[in-house]
Amino acid sequence: MIGCKSESKDLAINDELVIYDFEGLEPLLNNKDGKTYVINFWATWCAPCIKELPYFEELNQNYAGKNVEVILVSLDFPQQYEKKLIPYIKEKNLKSQVVALNDTDMNSWIPKISESWTGAIPATLIYNSKRRAFYERTFSYDELVMELRKFIEN
């Protein structure tokens, strides 16, 4: 079922999909709660995204105890939410929080996520209160861990 952002998020994790415009998503990109966030921009039809998605899931699982949280931001088209995205989340039993970004005015929000982002997916943002980095690239699990360590070991 599709919910909107005002609904309770405690129940939201993968039972329902929370859909944001950029204004709604922005707080998730700027948390200052001491956690390190790994934000992956993806879509179900994006082959390199799907290939690396298990690594983000693995990271979320392995680093949950180290104050790390993975959020998967889907850029699927709204007409695919019910047909493809939600079934995919269920089928793969994704444990990371999945949200959908539905905001067509991309020229305004892409640079707000990162000045360096040309707009291609997959793309990943890693941040905490001390450090922030954006990656317009794909990751292996080891590469992801290597980047994450720069955030949690100082």
Partner: peptide
């Protein structure tokens, strides 16, 4: 007016 804009797209394979 706007010489450079950004768009979401699929990475070139």
């Amino acid at each position: 007016k706007e010489k450079k804009t950004r768009a979401i797209g699929c990475s070139i394979k």
